Amino acid sequence: MERDSILDEIQELNLSYLLLVQRLLSEDRAIAMFRLKIDEPMADLLSSLSIKEISQLSRMNQLVSRPSFEDAAQLETLLRNQRGQGLTQTHLAMFMASPVLSS
């Protein structure tokens, strides 16, 4: 895949993500903040972005979002645990809801 094509896809993903964030915040702010792991000032800022500002931000050459998977071993254990097959979704939700610990 060409470099320009990859950059276009990153920018398209950024735009989609930012529009989704704004929609989630407008529909249910508390749940959106919890799911996105953002605080009140960030929610205020993201909610107030104009289309022009969203467009500018989306044109970055890197993703504006990042997965909240910080511990690959823990995620792998959750996904591949044969004993807890019926609880995988619950365990994943708990894992995703836990705060990110920085070293």
Score class of each variant (00 low, 15 high):
44 D>C: 00
26 S>D: 09
98 S>T: 10
71 D>I: 05
9 E>H: 10
58 S>M: 09
103 S>M: 10
16 S>D: 08
98 S>E: 10
61 N>R: 09
53 E>S: 13
11 Q>V: 05
94 M>P: 00
99 P>Q: 03
12 E>T: 15
80 R>T: 14
29 R>D: 03
84 G>P: 02
30 A>K: 14
35 R>L: 15
71 D>C: 02
45 L>D: 10
40 E>C: 02
66 R>A: 07
35 R>Y: 07
49 L>W: 02
41 P>F: 01
85 Q>M: 15
100 V>S: 09
72 A>G: 05
58 S>Y: 04
3 R>G: 02
41 P>R: 02
97 A>N: 12
99 P>H: 04
38 I>D: 02
10 I>V: 14
59 R>M: 12
51 I>E: 09
50 S>F: 06
20 L>M: 10
44 D>H: 03
7 L>I: 13
54 I>F: 04
38 I>W: 03
65 S>C: 11
28 D>S: 14
5 S>T: 11
77 T>R: 12
3 R>A: 12
53 E>T: 10
28 D>L: 11
73 A>P: 00
21 V>W: 01
97 A>K: 13
33 M>P: 00
6 I>N: 09
10 I>A: 01
31 I>H: 09
18 L>A: 04
79 L>K: 01
63 L>F: 09
60 M>I: 00
13 L>D: 02
51 I>H: 07
4 D>Q: 09
95 F>T: 00
45 L>T: 13
32 A>G: 07
45 L>G: 05
4 D>S: 12
63 L>H: 09
72 A>P: 02
103 S>P: 14
62 Q>T: 07
78 L>S: 06
50 S>E: 06
19 L>K: 15
32 A>L: 04
59 R>F: 05
27 E>F: 07
30 A>M: 07
17 Y>A: 03
31 I>Q: 13
42 M>R: 08
53 E>R: 12
21 V>T: 08
54 I>T: 11
5 S>K: 11
13 L>F: 06
17 Y>M: 00
81 N>I: 03
9 E>K: 13
6 I>P: 05
24 L>K: 12
45 L>Y: 08
43 A>H: 06
51 I>A: 13
88 T>R: 15
77 T>Q: 13
64 V>N: 11
90 T>D: 13
62 Q>H: 12
80 R>E: 05
